[in-house]
Design a protein around this nucleic acid. Structure first.
Lengths: 234, 234
DNA sequence: ATCACATTTCGGCTATGACCGAAACATGAC
DNA sequence: GTCATGTTTCGGTCATAGCCGAAATGTGAT
């Protein structure tokens, strides 16, 4: 039952590339489905399932069934801290190695966090929605306003399937790179999905960030007042 | 040459029991020969040698030849911190597992973190040094004041070798058990070394904490105003 | 009930890493 | 020089984890 006995077992679990990818995907997302993580890991669903089972059994991640999906999350902030520490050490040991997520400008600019947008753009989008009253925040509860519904209608974001889903429609998720919050939940997912479908953004295969197309830039500016130019390079 | 590429490689290296034993041996001993570590790992010398080569090449530990021995040490305080974090997580995940550092009163009271003091006493010592102006904190930089130098002189802590070493003299290191900071760096190491040499503290063989002798209690109270009684047992 | 989709279980293949013992290579002691 | 000691390299064995595809399970939609 109780499974983790030693430090080496934890390290062993983290020490597989597929699992590392999953964990780092979860680090930036409050929740991700098994399918999301399968994509993140770059392995077959069956293989991903095995990895997830191990991580869950060890207590590094938690799983909650929602409908026919299973959503995973890091089990505790300590796990995130540990991953963070490893990331820091890794980039210290290999300063000329591949850019880690933490130092990757593209990723910091428009990361994906599970199935929704994060990073600079994710936060800006969220703040725009709040500032314009499309989403209202009362204490811990978030509501979609009438104007918000109208906006989503204009953008052709299908809302009905979301409200029927057991998944929370709106939730804020802490963004480590911006030290702010970005929109998660069903709507966060639907927005990114729409952006990708309309070719406003593109996700490089297997990466955890998106590139914003010129068309996307225009939309972001018009609809949300966001200047989505590439991260400052000068 | 440059070897570590990713987080999973670091975790992979730590994720082998033999190597974990070696690393944790180094965490408490600052220097150990290949033979020591072979014993710690519980494998054949040839096998141990392979492990040490990998750890060294990855930059997790450093090796220095001395005579016909080779002495190893953790490459940086960050490595020690990482091991500490893993230990903390491991004991959290296996609360009914073998008694871990985290639940060990003696350890929480006066842990060692790498080569320096941590836990309740480590934090108290650090706060005393700061409160009395022996160490001054300006933003992120720490400086040893004139009174601090005098104190170290009184305690017969050799300072010259430290200032010449490439290692940072002063650094604060987050203490998970106290949720505060304790003194690391070269001075942190030198202090503990002095305490042990003067028999103010004793480290049980192979453990990662120290016991404070009556003599040590007196010194801590006089020099630092610290009440170093055993942890509250009632 | 039937279908579609998300996830898990199973069987089997393959690669790799941990391990040891024997031998080689140092280095210091004599 | 020879010897003993500490450490590394080499050759070969063995166990196991990762991987996949196919089939099974379970859940929600129709």
């Amino acid at each position: 039952m109780t499974s983790i006995v030693s430090i080496s077992e934890i390290a062993f679990l983290i020490g597989d590339p597929a699992r590392t990818n999953m964990l780092f995907c979860l680090q930036t997302s409050e929740m991700a489905s098994a399918a999301d993580l399968t994509r993140a890991a770059g392995v077959a669903p069956s293989t991903a399932s095995e990895h997830l089972a191990k991580l869950t059994q060890a207590g590094l991640i938690t799983a909650t069934q929602m409908g026919r999906h299973r959503y995973f999350a890091l089990a505790s902030p300590q796990v995130a801290e540990l991953l963070d520490g490893m990331d820091a050490l890794a980039s210290k040991l290999a300063p000329n190695g591949p850019p880690s997520l933490r130092n990757d400008q593209a990723a910091l600019h428009a990361r994906t966090c599970g199935d929704h947008l994060a990073g600079h753009i994710g936060v800006a989008l969220t703040q725009s929605l709040l500032a314009n009253g499309h989403i209202r925040q009362n204490g811990n509860t978030l509501t979609l306003s009438r104007s918000g519904r109208a906006l989503l209608h204009d953008l052709d974001v299908p809302l009905d399937p979301l409200t029927q889903s057991p998944r929370r429609l709106l939730s804020l998720c802490h963004d480590w790179s911006e030290d702010a919050f970005h929109l998660g939940g069903g709507l966060g997912g639907a927005l990114l999905q729409t952006f990708l479908a309309r070719d406003w953004m593109r996700r490089p295969k297997g990466r955890t960030f998106v590139d914003i197309t010129p068309k996307g830039r225009t939309i972001l500016r018009k609809a949300f007042g966001i200047n989505a130019n590439a991260p400052a390079s000068g």
